[in-house]
């Protein structure tokens, strides 16, 4: 009968509890420190493996590339496994990734080799990034231990709940995260991680495009070209609408002037009162339009009444 994980967790909690049961409640700190040290040791061991994997990347690749006499089969089975893990291209055909593509499918062969190469690059970068982030854990645990040691059962503000311990953990994690992400090496690793992923994505996209073209379907490249042309046309349309508006305004100006003059003959007394105001407003609008067109190199908003709504 398998062990229920909930029972196991409860048992662990009870074991932990019994280790300080009946003792001075102040001993919880010693208990916490012990557990933290335990986790720290465990983590350091795990880190050793990760570090080895990252720093010995090249030597492992060399080892994985050795020949495979049948007498040493078990050893070389392990080697094959390692090889597949580190560089599937090597495992695939004993250095196939180094060979040029041949025959009618040479392009596809080389494209597949490139996928394998880029995947390997991504795995390597991911390992380095994870290692960098994991290296901060011991510092988190040290901080947590120091922080816990400042709390006291009899203090005014003791740690009262598991939630408080959790909050303390989050605080320590965030502090260390902020410190490590402030380093230039983080910035470089994070950039490289994203770039490796994007290189792989771009390559896949190229393969997908090939396939779509083969099926006679529109591919991403075709869409990109259309999107670009559409934007160019939008800009051109805006420019032409602006020019048209300027021409319309220029054409209507003499008529407005003529109307004003005729009105002036009939009502000279009113013109005297309102003329200055009208000239001021007209000049202001005209200046606004001219400056808008010149600065943006595009158009004025009034140029496109079809795009407006709500009484602009």
């Amino acid at each position: 009968m398998g062990l229920d994980p909930r029972q196991l967790t409860w048992q662990l909690l009870r074991d932990a509890a019994s280790s300080v049961q009946g003792k001075d409640p102040g001993q919880w700190k010693a208990f916490a420190e012990e557990r933290i040290d335990e986790v720290r040791r465990y983590w350091e061991d795990a880190m050793g493996g990760l570090r080895a994997a990252a720093t010995q990347w090249s030597s492992m690749r060399e080892f994985a590339a050795l020949g495979s006499p049948s007498a040493m089969l078990p050893f070389f089975q392990f080697r094959d496994w390692l090889q597949a893990l580190l560089d599937p291209a090597q495992a695939w055909g004993g250095g196939a990734s180094e060979l040029p593509g041949l025959g009618p499918h040479r392009n596809q062969q080389e494209a597949a080799q490139e996928v394998v190469r880029l995947s390997g690059e991504l795995r390597k970068t991911m390992l380095e990034f994870n290692l960098y982030m994991a290296e901060g854990i011991p510092e988190v645990l040290d901080r947590l231990r120091d922080r816990l040691s400042t709390f006291d059962v009899d203090a005014e503000n003791p740690l009262k709940s598991s939630r408080a311990v959790y909050d303390l953990c989050v605080e320590c994690f965030e502090e260390v995260y902020a410190r490590r992400t402030a380093e230039e090496s983080f910035s470089r690793l994070y950039g490289e991680l994203n770039n490796s992923l994007l290189r792989l994505r771009k390559h896949w996209l190229g393969q997908l495009n090939e396939m779509l073209r083969g099926l006679g379907m529109p591919d991403q490249e075709a869409l990109t070209t259309l999107q670009k042309r559409q934007q160019e046309l939008r800009r051109e349309l805006r420019k032409l609408q602006g020019e048209l508006q300027t021409l319309r305004e220029a054409g209507s100006a003499p008529k407005q002037q003529q109307a004003k003059q005729q009105k002036g003959v009939r009502q000279p007394e009113k013109q005297a009162a309102s003329g200055a105001k009208a000239r001021k407003a007209g000049g202001r609008k005209g200046r606004a339009r001219r400056r808008g067109g010149a600065a943006s190199g595009t158009t004025t908003p009034g140029a496109s009444p079809g795009n407006t709504s709500g009484g602009a």
């Binding site: 992400t181 402030a182 910035s187 994070y190 950039g191 490289e192 994203n194 994505r201 771009k202």
Partner: peptide, 19 residues
């Protein structure tokens, strides 16, 4: 931090591969 995170990302690669 936001600036540090994007400092070494190849933005051309981002836009050319993602649109």
């Amino acid at each position: 931090l936001l600036s540090r995170m994007v400092r070494h990302i190849d933005v051309d690669l981002v836009v050319d591969s993602c649109g």
